[in-house]
Design a binder for these strands. Structure first.
Lengths: 216, 216
DNA sequence: CCCATAAATTAGGTATACCTAATAAGTAAA
DNA sequence: TTTACTTATTAGGTATACCTAATTTATGGG
């Protein structure tokens, strides 16, 4: 039984990400995220379970210890790739996700090490997500979605949970990027927009978008 | 008919390289180089021909205009990857070939451009081979194998036609790397070794090895 | 020119990862 | 509790790229 490592990594990475929002990950959710049909995913998940990378429990799949370890390695390579692309090759933060999706499967542990080393062991990717260390350990900041701040509350942007280039461009154009201080001036009722103040400018921001911006 | 681009690139790259030593490339030679069985290669070559990437002539295959164009793109990505690895990430010249073999399939035209740009459009890979430009054009230096120099002749190393890490380490330890001046002091008869002088030191070098070092 | 050998292809078969359509299993509302 | 619906899985089938064994096609020596 010879495996397609890239494909396995893709599944593990997706499961890992989806686990963060919903614990046992459902087949359909995973299929949607991977843009595959549910039966394909069902079948593949069975293979992953057989390899000891996931457990199929009642309401979905969850990573085993080893699956989690592998997933974090892929995520480390993904995020280090993103950093290399922005910091060394001059890419913008909205251009790096798709590129890194391909690079993460082509990067050896040696390249991984060298990238980390030459960038001074960065702690986060350009979107503010933590880069696990070689042992899969990373600091998880305690954050709140910007959408949950009350009027007059301030926060520093930690990360932006978004992959769509258009949206990332938009956010960057408003200056809504990690490490920036943002203040909520008012919150419109009935799920309406937030009025936020970023580096001297005032903008109206939808709840949906604001929920993807994590602050501390 | 949906294709595995990486596999196609692998074939084209191999054909391109083998063409340089033997013009129409034989199935068996190609199979050997790709470490696949001749029937597998025979079959795949048929598909490549169907896609208009190679022509199957009497005594083997040769790249079409388009096949050649694609091959040179892969080679460009390969060699730029190698340069990135040595110049930016601090790898040694013997470590980069295998890594680049994986990276070359994961690098988009955008990354390719950025690497070229941030390295100042390098003209050669760390082994001295030319990097084709975006249109597949590259300067081909007129070179001679070191093994063909007569006693007392001098030359400047242009490139080293070798991929084996052990051999590359050995050559680097003698200082036999591109841009270095080397003088043949004497040539032992009956296909014996050459005595060469490199930056003040004298070494005996087998004909086989010397034939892989190209000088001008 | 024919035969031995080397090279290329055809025949037949495997594994992986995907698909659609059909079925089964769970869940929630009537 | 039965129905209606959603979600997961099974069944059956496709494409790609590989393999070994058998056959065909070239090629060069006698």
């Amino acid at each position: 039984m010879e495996a397609d490592t890239s494909r396995i990594e893709e599944y593990l990475e997706s499961i890992y990400k989806l686990q963060q929002e919903q614990h046992p990950v459902s087949t359909s959710r995973l299929a949607e995220h991977l843009k595959l049909s549910p039966p394909s995913v069902s079948e593949m998940v069975k293979k992953l379970a057989h390899k000891g990378l996931v457990n199929q429990i009642e309401k979905g799949v969850c990573l085993t210890e080893e699956g989690s370890r592998m997933a974090k390695k892929v995520i480390r390579r993904h995020r280090l790739s993103e950093r290399l692309l922005t910091d060394v090759l001059g890419f913008k933060w909205d251009e790096v996700h798709d590129e890194a999706c391909r690079l993460e499967h082509a990067i050896s542990p040696e390249i991984e090490d060298r990238i980390a080393e030459s960038l001074g062991n960065p702690k986060t990717c350009p979107h503010g997500h933590p880069i696990p260390d070689k042992d899969g350990v990373f600091v998880k900041e305690i954050v709140r979605p910007l959408s949950e701040l009350k009027a007059r509350e301030k926060g520093i942007i930690v990360s932006v949970f978004e992959e769509d280039p258009k949206m990332l461009q938009y956010l960057a154009s408003l200056g809504l990027i990690p490490d920036v201080c943002v203040e909520v001036e008012e919150v419109a009722p009935f799920g309406g927009p937030l009025i936020v103040c970023v580096s001297g400018s005032r903008y109206a921001l939808g709840r949906e978008v604001a929920s993807k911006i994590k602050v501390k």
